[in-house]
Design a protein around this nucleic acid. Structure first.
Lengths: 336, 336
DNA sequence: GATACAATTGTGACCGGTCACATCGTTGAT
DNA sequence: ATCAACGATGTGACCGGTCACAATTGTATC
């Protein structure tokens, strides 16, 4: 503002070369004589020249900016993916602009603002299946979906194998001897809730058990819905042996309800969650869960996105990661 | 790439006006006749014109980008501030680019990359006192510090009144009848840990009690350090009546240690934390804590920053928010 | 009817880089 | 000795907006 910036032409004049030569020095001195290069570098240092990122973007058409859109930035799972993506992005020369879109409308506005203005080179969408938000994306714009498996959309994606998650969790409970295994789902409109349910049902069927619709309760990912689910079973008078909550938050809600009802976990009721949230081991009892490597999901997503930006082939890649079972005390063996 | 973009001059030619008139229509039609305006708008629609954010930045010198630098993006407290800041920023026409800097060196690199290139118009630094990172910031560049009170630096800031936090937490324990109140601190190099300690000591003194150095243990904000702290007291043979952990994570660690030691909370030991993390009510027993409105801190910080960007006065503002006591079951009255 | 003035619109430069191509001197092959 | 090829460097256009200022038109005033 006060002092106008030093430009590439100022440096050129100072060094007695052309502005193009300065540009060459800045961009890795391809074919510049050592003497000239030294002179230019001295001039850069003397004048304190700093290239303008905007001018560079203007001329090259590249901004070095990626956007990350998530329902919110506070949820541990989203935040971890963003963190992982950000580290990879920066390492590879990009910055990550994150924004939260609670609803589809906000999401559409955000996309309309970021993409056509060519401000960002690619978009990473976290949990795009909460509503129809993926429809607002351009099919030919570099995009990657992270954290939920696309069922019907052609795009890059990094997701967890949610069917496997459902199976593993349920199989673990079966192995412990439980038979009446209840399910508390996430928001059923989301693929990952559906897939985990599919895995749950597959595991039960594989064990020769019937699927009892009464044992399936729809939750909403919040702890409170886990609490309510167990209260519901208690009121209906038929408690399950075990509960598979589709995330840790709800599992923690179940634990709390069990305490309030005087139900002992794990001896009377086994509880398993999904995510392995940071304090999972500190609940009472410590929560058995399936660990997801969210940072890794974010990293893979960033890598895929950058590849799509730099070498647009039109081909889509899908990376699927698996969760690992972390056994703690909330799922002991059935009481003898 | 394939199809070159529609520019303002294409629109002008199509509408039969000058490019400048199109520009005027784009920027809120100051003094453009209704007929011309309609014609230009028709041309814009017909050609699908989308202004280039980069070209706009190039010409205007403004990028509409703010940066947010935090030690990481996953910590609930940081993420909440970022989320709050992002919402305000977007509402006011800015985008927020967030990046994590674990150490001072990364932070310095980040600043060197973002600021001199004029890519961002302002920087928000979350928890700048973990090391000397604030020293890398330019004094005349729009900056705001969020989440920790600057002791020695002239700058905008939004922070919690940590002395008050220490006092309130300690006073609550005193009110419950506790006398031997231990303190588990955060990283002592950080101002907020120091300030909370000052508040703790002030409250004790105000109650006519001595400050016993043996009751003060240095933690590191992690749950594990809270766990270790109580174990340390148990081993030393002199358990306190109550523990004030400087954040909830450590308080939760204390709760876990108490369970492992067979110490009943709150009847044998009261525990209070700070932050009110999302699942605080789901631990055993539900955790009494001081709630911080992190989203609000982020919002205020964004507002301050945008003000500094838009009206650079050189004056610094400090906003200090206070925490509210949330009483749950981890701090009952002393056993009769 | 001439002049002043405001409203509307047009012109060209400019932001600060990069790109394509031109130029120049030097070297190696014929 | 001549020409091609190549390395080093320079020239000007260009990216797509905004800005300052000029030009044009219409309207009010005298």
């Amino acid at each position: 503002m006060s002092r106008s910036h030093v430009t590439i032409r100022d440096v050129a004049a100072y060094a007695g070369v052309s502005h193009q030569t300065v540009s060459r020095v800045m961009n890795g001195s391809e074919r510049v004589s050592a003497a000239t290069k030294a002179r230019v570098e001295a001039a850069i240092a003397a004048l304190g020249y700093q290239p303008s990122a905007i001018a560079r973007s203007m001329a090259s058409g590249r901004t070095g900016l990626l956007a990350c859109l998530a329902p919110n930035l506070t949820d541990y799972t989203f935040a971890s993916m963003i963190d992982g993506a950000e580290m990879v992005a920066r390492q590879r020369g990009y910055f990550l602009l994150s924004a939260s879109a609670q609803d589809e409308q906000t999401f559409a506005a955000l996309v309309a603002q970021l993409i056509p203005s060519r401000q960002v080179e690619g978009v990473m969408v976290i949990d795009p299946y909460v509503d129809g938000r993926f429809q607002h994306l351009l099919p030919d714009f570099p995009t990657v979906f992270a954290g939920a498996r696309p069922h019907d959309t052609a795009s890059n994606s990094v997701s967890l194998d949610d069917v496997q998650v459902g199976q593993t969790a349920t199989a673990h409970l079966l192995r412990q001897g439980h038979r009446r295994i209840a399910l508390v789902t996430g928001v059923l409109g989301e693929n990952c809730a559906q897939d985990r349910k599919v895995g749950y049902e597959a595991a039960l069927r594989a064990a020769g058990l019937q699927i009892e619709p009464d044992l399936i309760v729809a939750g909403n990912w919040q702890a409170r819905s886990g609490y309510d689910a167990l209260m519901h079973f208690a009121q209906s008078g038929s408690l399950p042996d075990a509960i598979f909550a589709q995330n840790d938050q709800m599992a923690v809600g179940v634990l709390r309800a069990a305490r309030d009802l005087g139900i002992k976990v794990p001896s009377q009721l086994a509880v398993i969650g999904v995510d392995d949230i940071p304090l999972a081991a500190y609940f009472e009892p410590p929560l058995t869960t399936l660990r997801q490597d969210f940072a890794r999901i974010g990293q893979e997503a960033a890598n895929l996105l950058i590849q799509a930006v730099e070498q647009p082939t039109g081909l889509h890649q899908h990376v699927q990661l698996s969760a690992t079972l972390i056994v703690r005390q909330s799922t002991g063996a059935v009481a003898a």
